[in-house]
Nucleic acid binder design. Structure first.
Lengths: 117, 117
DNA sequence: AGCACCTGCTAGCTTCTCTTGGCATGTGCG
DNA sequence: CGCACATGCCAAGAGAAGCTAGCAGGTGCT
C-alpha cells in the first residue's frame, strides 16, 4: 500500500538518477549529514561543477532538497538534505509501473500473432 | 534482514538496467507470461536485435534468465522469464550500499577541512 | 526449392551522459 | 584592494548507451 505506486516515468527517472556511483555517494553523505555544496564537494573529492550537476538531478528526481541559508559570517550557502523516499523493486512493482509509462511511440500491438502453427 | 544487502556496484547495475522504458516493459511482459525472443519482440513492437540487447542486460543484472527449448515442431526457441528479486530504495539502503562501492578512484578524503572560520 | 520462423552477431550511426575548465557574481577580512 | 570562500552557468570533449540494418546458420512444411 502506502505509495500510490510511482508513475512508470517517475520510476525510470528515479532509477536513472540513483544508478550512478557519485550520486549514490552524495545521497549517502547527505544521509549522514546535511551539507552545503562546496564542503560536500571537498569531502567527496569531486569538483563543484560536477557535484552541482548531480545535485541538480537528485533534486529533479525529488530525492534531495535544498535551502539557501546565510552563515554567521554572511556567506550564502546552499544546504542540501535527503528527502524521505521508499521505492520497492520487485517484478510486480515493475509490472505495475510499466502500465503507466508514456507512449512507446509508434503503433500499438494487440495480438499480432496468428500465422504459423 | 533477509537480503545481505546488495553490493553498491550490484545496486548500480540493477538500477541502471531497470532505468529504461524498454527494459521495464520487457520485465513487465515476462512477469505476465514467459516468452521467447521473436514473439516478445513482436508483442512489444521492437526489433529482435534491440530486444536481444535489452534481454542481455537484464540477464547480466540477474533480473531475468533464459532457457533454450525445442518447440513441438522442432524449432529452437529461447524462453525468458523473470527472476525473483526485491530491491528496496530508501535513504538508508542507499547509504548502506554506498559503503560497498568500488574505488572512488584517486586520493581519499579524511577531513580536508580546517582553514577558514 | 522456396517460404516462414527461430537464433545469433556486428559494423556504424546517433544520441545522451559525464566531466572538466573557465568565467561571473557576491560577502567578509587583513 | 586582494585573497579566500560561497554560488551559478556554460561550452566542449570523451565516452557510453541505444538502435538499425544486414548477414549468418538451422528446422519444418508445401
Amino acid at each position: 500500500m502506502s505509495r500510490p505506486g510511482p508513475t512508470g516515468d517517475d520510476l525510470v527517472r528515479v532509477l536513472a538518477t540513483l544508478a550512478n556511483p557519485h550520486r549514490l555517494r552524495v545521497v549517502a553523505a547527505l544521509v549522514r549529514e546535511r551539507n552545503y555544496v562546496s564542503r560536500l564537494a571537498r569531502q567527496l573529492g569531486i569538483s563543484r561543477a560536477l557535484l552541482q550537476v548531480h545535485l541538480r538531478k537528485l533534486e529533479a528526481a525529488g530525492l534531495v532538497s535544498a535551502q539557501l541559508e546565510l552563515s554567521e559570517d554572511g556567506k550564502a550557502m546552499k544546504f542540501y538534505e535527503v528527502n524521505q523516499f521508499d521505492y520497492r523493486l520487485t517484478p510486480d512493482a515493475v509490472a505495475a509501473a510499466e502500465q503507466t509509462l508514456s507512449l512507446p511511440e509508434p503503433g500499438e500491438r494487440g495480438v499480432e500473432e496468428g500465422s504459423r502453427s
